[in-house]
Design a protein around this nucleic acid. Structure first.
Length: 490
RNA sequence: GGCGACGUGGCCAAGUGGUAAGGCAUGGGUCUGCAAAACCCUGAUCACGGGUUCAAAUCCCGUCGUCGCCUCCA
């Protein structure tokens, strides 16, 4: 069993062998913080969180770095519009993204470097590039000299000639080659700027990641990740800059997640067809978003729409069904308990096999669903709590590797009043004296079930169904069985 | 125009040479006063056309379609 990882650089799945045995360094390009983050950003963070979790499950010690781009044109534009300092805009959205990371159950990176905190490193790097002839200053801007870089284009598989002929960019007279890109930008009046030997200015977009990864992970790293829209020019340029200086392969494995598709198009700020993370979480659980992402292979495009959200929520309910308690009076599986244990082993093995194949999360989910079925079958066959516990623990463990919380709603977080009202109403109809009004939510629901049972015993179907219907409106599902009724949160 | 990815049952989606995982939905059944859940059963030859092979969804060529990048972008 060995882990295979698809490397954008080679366009092939390769055996995963980190530079240092047992250790993995991983740098993921984070957002440019000029606006609210959308579910596409979340997808990237969730994909690499899952990769990290699995690497850790496989026993690797992972050093995870995710940067924030906190100075760029769009941030500056926004700050001017709001009449605040650019850093204020950046800080606002960095704080917000940090909150999303927790809401989405994404493990914290070891470092969250920000461009403006590392200007010193960046300037040093630009100086080095100029000194070695890989970059040149022109009226305060500094450009990378692509023709000096023999293998420029190797990541995105482009040739300089092809790009020049089809390029939609304006030819800048100051560039030696139209494809030369800025590593440093001269500041215009009123823009944030830092002093350098070639004038006041700010970093180009690509140089920050090079400088920060160099500072935090060294000259080489194992995994460099991001959305596949970053392959060119961002990552291509990072490679050009960094390898020109170090003369060593920058990242061993380049990993890119596919784009989330909303109504057939990439969700992006410029297209204006985005759903923010806040929008999504206002109506749905974080597990639902993760489920959608896990259901497809990370490299491919991801269909995102209301139907898919609904399907993911139903699929989660299915996983939750494995955690329902044993049937009342379960006799136990006895000799047959071994079968469930074998099924647990089988599920774990197929989970690892799937994940080892370039993080095939849909396959991993299939293993979990198979085990869910096995548990439910065992319950139907009379398994007791103890017999189900190990299998349920395995579901929790494997789902946890995928970052699913599977948290049950806690009755203590729900206001008891509507349930108590419903209870006294029902008791009135039954002609009973009313129960004390200081019940907890859970107690009120338990008592409602008792009352409903009395109504049913009296064949007062209309009234008993009303209790069920009204509880359903409050989010409580009642399930009858021959051993009595149980309830759960929908 | 250049580069790249993709097209699998109603929907989402694995599978990249030996006759197609999983989830959602549908229909039937068990259970049930009814319902819900769970469980059982139920359906695809893999965009289209050629070719290679004993054998292809899986390799090659072509066609059509969708999408991404080439400009800021997860």
């Amino acid at each position: 069993m060995s882990l295979k990882v698809y490397n954008t650089l080679s366009r092939q799945k390769e055996d995963f062998e980190p530079l240092q045995a047992g250790m993995v360094s991983m740098y993921v390009c984070g957002p440019t913080v000029y606006d609210k983050a959308h579910v596409g950003h979340a997808m990237s963070s969730l994909v690499f969180d899952t990769i990290r979790r699995y690497l850790e499950y496989r026993g690797y010690k992972v050093k995870h770095v995710m940067n924030y781009t906190d100075v760029d044109d769009k941030i500056i534009v926004r700050a001017l519009r709001e009449e605040v300092e650019f850093i204020e805009v950046a800080q606002r959205y960095i704080s917000e993204y940090g909150r999303h990371i927790d809401e989405l159950n994404i493990l914290h990176a070891d470092v969250y470097p920000r461009a403006t905190d590392e200007i010193g490193h960046i300037i040093e790097m630009v100086e080095d590039l100029i000194e070695k002839g890989y970059a040149y200053a022109a009226e305060g801007d500094v450009y990378f000299r692509v023709e000096k870089d023999d293998d420029y284009g190797k990541l995105s598989r482009r040739k300089l000639e092809d790009m020049q002929s089809g390029a939609r960019i304006d030819v800048d007279e100051r560039k030696e080659n139209p494809m030369d890109f800025a590593v440093w930008k001269a500041a215009k009046e009123g823009e944030p700027a830092w002093g350098t030997p070639w004038g006041k200015g700010r970093p180009g977009w690509h140089i920050e990641c090079s400088a920060m990864s160099l500072a935090h992970l060294g000259e080489q790293m194992d995994i460099h990740g991001g959305g596949n829209d970053l392959v060119f020019p961002h990552h291509e340029n990072e490679i050009a800059q960094t390898e020109s200086l170090t003369d060593k392969p920058f990242a061993k494995y380049w990993m890119h997640n596919g784009m989330l598709q909303l109504s057939g198009e990439k969700m992006s700020k410029s297209l204006g067809n985005l759903i923010t993370i806040d929008d999504f979480l206002a109506d749905h659980n974080a597990d639902a978003l993760r489920m959608i992402i896990l259901n497809s292979q990370y490299r491919g495009p991801l269909t995102f729409n209301n139907e898919v959200i609904e399907q993911a929520e139903r699929a989660l309910e299915r996983i939750h069904s494995a955690f329902r308690p044993a049937n009342a009076g379960a006799a136990g599986l006895g000799d047959k308990a071994g079968e469930l244990q074998e099924q647990v082993e089988a599920a774990k093995n197929s989970f690892v096999t799937a994940m080892d194949d370039d993080f095939n999360t849909p396959g991993a989910l299939a293993s979990i669903f198979d085990l869910v079925r096995n548990i439910n079958q065992a319950r139907d066959n009379g398994a007791n709590e103890e017999e189900m516990a190990a299998a349920q623990g395995a579901i929790r463990e494997l789902a946890g590797v995928l970052g699913l919380r599977l948290a049950a709603k806690d009755a203590a977080d729900v206001d008891a009043k509507p349930f108590i009202d419903l209870l006294s109403q029902s008791e009135k109809e039954l002609g009973k004296s009313e129960t004390a009004a200081d019940l907890s939510t859970a107690e009120a629901i338990d008592t409602l079930l008792v009352v409903r049972q009395e109504l049913r015993a009296a064949k007062m179907w209309e009234q008993s169904d009303k209790v069920r219907d009204e509880l359903a409106e409050l989010g409580v599902v009642i399930e009858d069985s021959k051993d009595g009724a149980t309830w759960r949160w929908k």
